[in-house]
């Protein structure tokens, strides 16, 4: 299948290793991945902060860039949630029936990465090997908006050598919430402290999720506290295969480039 990667703006700049991992997994499964360099952002930050008018040209650009893409894969559940939950309303708000029609045609072709694997490509075993303790954090949008439910866990259970450990209160928000983490920094930090306590109590070595935004937030505290728990996007775990030497060569595979997966 021909898959068009929407990397998302913050993954592009901050977590290129996640994009590389997505490409690696999908190509290993025999698919063709394309990347449209004209892509920018889905408009989520502006929309969620109340800058609806400002987010319109951004989402219009997204729709324009991907209008003729066959299937779009996004390694971020919150960006997919932005599209599914708000694009239709945004098009109506803009009083643009043509845009509304394009959105309607586009949305069924947009998939979050793990959702694409399990629901669209019908694969759970992607041939990965990762010999670490891993805890899964179901990010709010992946759980409550996309209803991914057990999908990421199905994928993780098929990874060779992986020891999946339970995370207490896993469904509770980590306190990121985009600009919330800045505007309400104290509450956000208190929420994060609860989350980090659960992560540390789980005894895991690696925390994973389908959103780098939440992982960056949680890891921000783990790193500040000088713990050795790492945060790794699900795609990066799935990209690890028997031949892991290739990964070691990749300087930016994990958040802390000096600590590479075994």
């Amino acid at each position: 299948m021909r898959l068009s990667l929407f990397i998302t703006c913050y993954n592009d700049a901050l977590f290129p290793q996640t994009g590389k991992a997505v490409v690696r997994v999908l190509e290993r499964l025999g698919h063709t991945v394309e990347f449209r360099p004209a892509q920018t952002c889905c408009g989520q930050m502006h929309w969620n902060t109340g800058y609806l008018r400002e987010s319109l040209p951004i989402l219009r650009h997204f729709v324009h860039v991907f209008a003729d893409a066959e299937t779009i894969v996004v390694p971020s559940s919150s960006c997919v949630a932005m599209m599914r939950d708000h694009y239709t309303k945004a098009a109506q708000m803009d009083n643009d029936p043509a845009l509304a029609r394009e959105v309607e045609l586009l949305l069924p072709r947009v998939f979050e990465f793990s959702e694409l694997l399990v629901r669209r490509l019908r694969v759970e075993d992607v041939g990965a090997r990762f010999t670490h303790k891993v805890a899964y954090h179901p990010s709010c949008h992946s759980a409550r908006s996309l209803h991914l439910d057990e999908i990421p866990l199905h994928l993780l259970r098929r990874v060779r050598g992986l020891d999946l450990v339970p995370l207490a209160n896993s469904q509770e928000c980590c306190g990121f919430g985009g600009t919330f983490a800045i505007k309400n920094a104290d509450v956000s930090s208190a929420m994060l402290a609860d989350k980090v306590r659960c992560v540390l109590n789980s005894g895991t070595e690696v925390l994973t999720a389908v959103d780098n935004s939440c992982l960056m937030h949680i890891h921000g505290s783990l790193h500040r506290q000088r713990t050795h728990v790492r945060a790794v996007h699900l795609a990066e775990i799935l990209a690890c295969s028997e031949d892991e030497s290739a990964l070691a060569a990749d300087q930016h595979f994990t958040f802390a480039s000096s600590e590479l997966p075994r």
């Binding site: 990397i7 993954n11 592009d12 700049a13 901050l14 977590f15 290129p16 290793q17 996640t18 994009g19 590389k20 990347f35 360099p37 983490a181 800045i182 505007k183 920094a185 104290d186 956000s188 930090s189 994060l192 402290a193 960056m216 937030h217 890891h219 921000g220 505290s221 790193h223 500040r224 300087q251 930016h252 958040f255």
Partner: peptide
């Protein structure tokens, strides 16, 4: 407000797009 309790990863030298 962010860095009071959290570290932030630096931008890697090469973005995905550039890679």
């Amino acid at each position: 407000g962010w860095t009071k309790t959290r570290d932030l990863p630096a931008l890697p030298a090469e973005s995905f797009r550039d890679w």
